[in-house]
């Protein structure tokens, strides 16, 4: 690998620019594939370029068989994202777990007593109202949204924006009773069964979790499960 290629990969990562590295395995020649063009000494046929673009969208690295032999397409996408609404105790444990799993975490809580840098020294915390924050963050299909306040005036606006987005995971903390009441309120906002099915509530895999750390584990486990189920289905 040439230094210029490596430096470009590192710069693209910093700029959160999706890029794929194509390597001709027989020769070692390489090029970088972007949505709008390529850079480097390896020239790719039109169809190979097409599969490289698809690999970027699918977030899946693979080896393409071409007329010149095997070309390995290695995808570097920006990090997955997680938006946590409610800078509560569980969030203090969930945020570092998500970061370890490769997520870029944003915490949303307009209650300044919760959303302090002292509680979340390593994370972005915004005190915007949840719907405004979510609209700005614009969840895509590589974003998970988790609401933890179980306060309708904070959770509901966040869920409303998340449900209108492509977020691959939406989870909402609260008991079965709380969740049932939540769905009734969302129904009044015009959401229906298809939307309700997208919300994981009560949030997390049923591990019998009790402590904040255990609940965070159950949420992270469920987010991971849904991510891979959706990838396998893609």
């Amino acid at each position: 690998m040439k230094r210029a290629v490596l430096d470009a990969l590192i710069a693209d990562h910093a700029a959160k620019r999706p890029v794929a590295l194509a390597t001709e395995l027989s020769s070692g020649r390489q090029c970088l594939v972007y949505a709008d063009g390529t850079e480097g000494e390896l020239e790719l046929a039109e169809d190979v370029l097409g599969t490289a673009h698809k690999a970027l969208v699918d977030d899946r690295s693979f080896t393409a068989e071409t007329a010149n032999g095997a070309v390995f397409i290695l995808v570097f996408n920006p990090p997955l994202r997680m938006v946590i609404v409610g800078a509560v105790h569980i969030a203090q444990l969930l945020a570092p777990m998500a970061a370890l799993a490769g997520y870029e975490v944003t915490m949303v809580d307009p209650r300044r007593a919760f959303a302090t840098d002292a509680r979340f020294p390593d994370f972005t915390v915004t005190v915007e109202w949840p719907d405004e924050a979510l609209e700005r963050i614009a969840p895509d299909r590589r974003t998970a949204v988790v609401t933890l306040t179980h306060d309708p005036k904070l959770d509901d606006p966040a869920l409303a924006v998340a449900l209108r987005s492509e977020a691959f995971y939406i989870g909402s903390l609260g008991s079965k009773k709380t969740h049932a009441a939540r769905l009734e309120r969302l129904a009044e906002l015009g959401f229906g069964e298809t939307d309700f099915a997208r919300i994981h509530g009560p949030v997390g895999l049923p591990l019998g979790a009790a402590s904040p750390a255990e609940i965070a584990i159950s949420i992270m486990a469920q987010v991971t499960q849904v991510l891979h189920q959706k990838r396998a289905a893609a």
């Binding site: 690998m1 490596l6 990969l9 990562h13 977030d59 290695l74 570097f76 996408n77 990090p79 490769g102």
Partner: peptide
């Protein structure tokens, strides 16, 4: 999918320090 923060950045740092580096 990949996070070049760890591996590729470390590789670049090693190379910048004049070391021979291979990537698997």
């Amino acid at each position: 999918m990949q996070d070049p923060d760890d591996v590729l950045k470390r590789a670049a740092d090693w190379r910048a320090a004049g070391k021979g580096v291979a990537i698997a």
